[in-house]
Amino acid sequence: MFYPNSPQTSPQLTQIPYGQQYAMMQRQIQQPYHPFATTEPQARLYPYHYQGPIQQEQGGFITQQSTAASPQYVQMRVTPVDQSIMSGYPNQTANGSSSSSFNYNIHPQQQQQQQQQQQQLRHHAMPVGSVPLQDDRYRKQLIVNYLAPDVTSTDLHELFSRFGELDGARIIYDKQTNMSKGYGFVYFCHAEDAKEAVERMSGYEFHGKWLKVGYSTNPLNIVPSNSSPYVHAGSRGAAG
């Protein structure tokens, strides 16, 4: 039997160049792979992502010199942007860049009308829970959420009447099932009393439920100042 490094198959040491006398086997001759043993700084910083320098080929596509990437890492192929796409944008300079302001050559009167329309939209648009300043009635009506099913309009009136005089209180019921929808409205005579009720009743436990109280901004629920107070009856038909 002959071994790869046996004296019968191995040459004389004098015939082997210096430095390879003890590297006779194939696994010894093959050098191990060192990912950080390279002179390129990109490979030292990113050993798993770097795959060699990027070269520009004919046709405008950018390719990489090395083989496919590892399945664990996804390499994105980048193509140059066609400058003709950006030619339609206004205020574009000769080098292809555009300024931040756009001039669509709008007539001054049209621009003024658009600004007025935007101001009107901001004036009428009102986020949930906010209180408008032009109508004091919005500051007097509250919406009470997360009410228990057994709470009546009379219970709601008695709960909030300790903060001040009320114009009314009612629970909203479903017309088909005649069941409470879980929320109601309270109408105060003074805005200061309503503000105190919002601050003190939010998070209050009532009939096993934690109440959420806020201003009601729905104009359909506003009680006119010259109208008669609501009837605080315990029956659902009268309260709904």
Rank of each mutant, 00 (worst) to 15 (best):
F2K: 15
F2A: 12
Y3N: 12
Y3C: 12
P4C: 02
P4I: 02
P4V: 03
N5I: 03
S6G: 08
P7Y: 07
Q8D: 08
T9Q: 14
T9C: 06
S10W: 04
S10K: 14
S10N: 08
P11F: 04
P11Q: 12
Q12V: 03
Q12Y: 05
Q12G: 13
T14R: 11
T14C: 08
Q15D: 07
Q15M: 03
Y18Q: 09
Q20Y: 04
Q20W: 06
Q21F: 02
Q21S: 07
Q21E: 03
Y22W: 12
Q30G: 09
Q31P: 06
Y33K: 15
Y33I: 09
Y33H: 10
H34I: 07
H34F: 03
H34Y: 04
H34R: 13
H34P: 08
P35K: 15
A37C: 08
Q42V: 07
A43E: 12
P47T: 05
G52V: 06
P53R: 13
I54G: 09
E57S: 09
E57D: 07
Q58C: 13
F61Y: 09
T63E: 08
Q64L: 02
Q64Y: 03
Q64H: 10
Q65P: 09
A68H: 11
A68Q: 04
A69F: 05
A69E: 07
S70L: 03
S70R: 13
S70K: 14
P71G: 05
P71Q: 13
Q72Y: 07
Q72T: 08
Y73G: 13
V74I: 12
V74Y: 14
Q75Y: 02
R77G: 10
R77F: 01
R77E: 03
T79H: 12
P80L: 05
I85V: 11
I85C: 11
I85D: 05
M86W: 09
M86I: 11
M86D: 03
S87L: 03
G88K: 12
G88D: 09
P90K: 13
N91W: 04
N91L: 07
Q92L: 06
T93E: 06
G96T: 08
G96E: 05
S97R: 11
S98L: 06
S99P: 10
S99C: 07
S100E: 07
S100C: 12
S101Q: 07
F102L: 10
N103L: 06
N103Y: 04
N103H: 13
Y104F: 11
N105R: 09
I106W: 10
H107N: 13
P108D: 06
Q109Y: 12
Q109C: 11
Q109I: 12
Q110F: 12
Q111R: 12
Q111I: 11
Q112H: 12
Q112P: 08
Q114F: 08
Q115P: 07
Q116H: 12
Q116R: 10
Q118K: 13
Q120Y: 10
Q120E: 05
L121D: 05
R122Y: 07
A125T: 12
V128N: 09
S130N: 08
V131R: 12
V131G: 12
P132H: 13
P132R: 12
Q134H: 10
D135E: 03
D135S: 07
D136W: 12
Y138N: 02
K140P: 01
Q141Y: 00
V144D: 00
V144M: 00
V144Q: 01
N145Y: 00
Y146W: 03
L147N: 02
A148L: 01
P149D: 02
V151F: 01
T152N: 05
T152C: 09
D155T: 14
D155I: 12
H157S: 05
H157L: 15
H157C: 10
E158L: 13
L159D: 00
F160W: 00
F160C: 02
R162G: 11
R162F: 13
G164W: 04
G168F: 01
A169N: 01
I172A: 02
Y173N: 07
D174S: 06
D174C: 14
K175V: 05
K175H: 15
Q176C: 11
Q176V: 13
Q176L: 13
T177N: 05
T177G: 02
M179I: 11
G184Q: 00
Y187A: 00
C189R: 15
C189M: 05
C189A: 03
H190L: 04
H190W: 05
A191S: 07
A191Y: 07
A191V: 13
A191N: 03
A194W: 00
E196A: 14
E199Q: 14
R200T: 06
S202D: 05
G203K: 02
Y204W: 15
Y204E: 08
Y204V: 10
H207C: 10
H207M: 12
G208A: 08
G208R: 15
G208P: 00
L211K: 01
K212E: 02
V213L: 10
V213S: 01
G214F: 02
Y215S: 01
S216E: 01
S216N: 02
N218P: 01
P219L: 01
L220W: 01
N221T: 10
I222D: 02
V223E: 03
V223I: 07
S225F: 06
S225N: 08
S225R: 10
N226P: 04
S227H: 06
S228A: 06
S228C: 12
P229M: 09
Y230V: 04
V231M: 09
H232F: 13
G234I: 12
G234Y: 14
R236K: 04
G237C: 14
A238E: 04
A238H: 10
A238F: 14
A239P: 10
A239V: 10
